[in-house]
Design a protein around this nucleic acid. Structure first.
Lengths: 330, 330
DNA sequence: TTTAGCACTCATATATTGACAATGCTAACA
DNA sequence: TGTTAGCATTGTCAATATATGAGTGCTAAA
């Protein structure tokens, strides 16, 4: 599709633009490609016809189009080793064996965000399909209990229960025993149903204050934590020149605050996926690089959000490094 | 200090500026105060001498200074009832009895943020001074356990423990029993010490694989969750005209992302406290209204952050309404 | 196929201008 | 003594002009 020189030219323009954020002129390139600026201009205008380059105005230098970035990422980009300095920075996190997986990921992503000037997002997997493996109830004081639910995958969730009326400890114990017997093995998102159709009729027969108790447990067990979302380094990303006006920044901040939009980032495919501009469903001016991970039975997605003009090779190397080291230790 | 007319004038200027975000001219006021614009100008220049008003440039109208807002809040502001419409919006949250306190607060604050165009921050109280009331350990698979710590105030915290070598269930049980006996009643931030100086020597004697176990528990029990911080409605606040340029917004966003700065918001005094401009330790252009709460044994601080030009009376009324309704039900 | 050269276009920066909205001050007034 | 009318002054804001420079497209020649 593109000949050798055209490919080189596109590579140079994309990489130069990524570095400088300024439209690339023909003159700037002729030294590198050993020909005159006029020749470059001819080639450039071909790449523009193909839709890989764009001008910001009629007499400006060239800028990669969305399609141009896509082509670059798909056909030109070469995988690159993480450079020593960056690796060193991450190593201190990797080697800190006392970190749990969650912390390892979020700390690494904090560093990555700083190194790349991108916003890091960590989406913890929802545990809706986990199954209950144990329910424990601990009294705190007269009217408050804590119910703890542990799932087969090691997810823990707890709820404060308030029981306003006086209920005998025995009643509570009986109810908990029943619940324990009946809901173990149930998926978290099915617990409500089981409580209503299986547990309720039975405790109604055996437990005196069954209504109060049932209600307390029902509300506690039907609203489990949604998947967790953490975000760091929005400030880093917003320093980039593409976000140089107030309205653009406001727009991006609004989107980051919109749970629905952020939730959509969750990834199904394995490995690293790159979404550019309109492919992101987030904003035409950004690229999102996503990676699903799975380690120690936990899974989730990490993503980096930033301008389309990002160092794709570096970002990929970083994410791969994080994934590698996730398996080993933590 | 200020005579009647001066007080009225300051009140009018502050409130007009809060409403319109434009410097207030003498002409705009003379109708309200029944005198000529020249008279107003004389009074204005007195208020400027006193430091209560400022000009944005030499021939502009007047704007309240930081001191002016302070004076307004301290001496002029009249407490106001929450208007019906706003109350109605909050009522749906208040009446939803299935909400836990945490959710009640965060949902209310989301609404308040929208109604006021301010950023809402909810700082959950750190539980460092809670005392351990129960430790429970649940095995998940061969190498993973979950340790659950419950405090006297009903705070629950859990950790995944990974034990790489093979350790007998009996050893684990013994260790947990010992830990349970020895650390109950200890403050969370003291647990590390107790483990090291009291538990360690004992398990060293009685438990075979004591080193592996000790290390696993030690790392799990010395890093408890910091206080939780949630923030909503940054976008609302950033829409205000005082944040009309990219750098200002970036600056504010950076501060919101800086944990140290945000942590400082935590309040010790009871009731509602208002910090204006330089008093905030956050940014000279913002006001922070803070309120400490305590209900159901939980405590924390909620805060609203926005431009100094905020509707102080409304904000106070809203926070008070939230506090009132916190005690009653949830 | 490549290149030199030139006309053309647009962004950016800087001045210039006029209209306007306030103010401060002074002198007259009640 | 406090209030007011009137006017010069000052700054903002938006529109317009002007110069400069960077870059392109195109054409004709190498």
């Amino acid at each position: 599709m593109l000949n050798d020189r055209q490919t080189k030219l596109l590579k140079i323009i994309v990489e130069d633009y990524i570095k400088t954020a300024r439209p690339v002129s023909s003159k700037a390139i002729c030294d590198i490609l050993n020909c005159s600026s006029a020749t470059i201009r001819n080639e450039m205008s071909y790449l523009e016809e193909t839709g890989l380059l764009e001008k910001t105005h009629i007499s400006s230098g060239r800028v990669p189009s969305e399609k141009g970035y896509r082509y670059y990422v798909d056909h030109i980009l070469e995988p690159r080793e993480l450079n020593g300095e960056d690796m060193l920075k991450l190593q201190t996190i990797v080697n800190n064996s006392s970190l749990m997986l969650d912390d390892y990921i979020s700390k690494s992503m904090e560093i990555v965000s700083e190194m790349t000037n991108l916003t890091a997002i960590v989406l913890g997997k929802s545990s809706k399909d986990n199954c209950v493996s144990k329910v424990e109830v601990v009294p705190i004081n007269e009217h408050n209990l804590i119910a703890i639910v542990i799932t087969d995958k090691g997810h823990v969730e707890h709820k404060n229960l308030t029981i306003k009326e006086n209920v005998s400890i025995n009643d509570i114990k009986q109810t908990v025993d029943l619940i324990n017997k009946m809901i173990i093995g149930t998926q978290l998102n099915e617990v409500g149903k089981v409580l209503e159709y299986e547990v309720k009729p039975i405790i109604a027969r055996y437990v005196k204050q069954h209504e109060v108790l049932y209600n307390a447990f029902y509300t506690a067990f039907t609203d489990f934590a949604k998947e967790s979302v953490t975000m760091t380094g929005r400030k880093n990303m917003l320093m980039q020149p593409e976000f140089n006006n107030a309205d653009k920044i406001r727009d991006i901040i609004s989107k980051f605050e919109d749970k629905e939009i952020v939730d959509k980032i969750e990834e199904n495919d394995n490995g690293i996926n790159i979404y550019i501009g309109s492919e992101t469903e987030f904003d035409d001016d950004v690229t999102i690089v996503k990676m699903k991970y799975e380690a120690n039975g936990e899974e989730g997605t990490i993503a980096l959000v930033g301008p389309k003009r990002m160092e794709y090779d570096k970002v990929i190397a970083l994410l791969e490094y994080i994934k590698e080291n996730m398996k080993e230790g933590n």
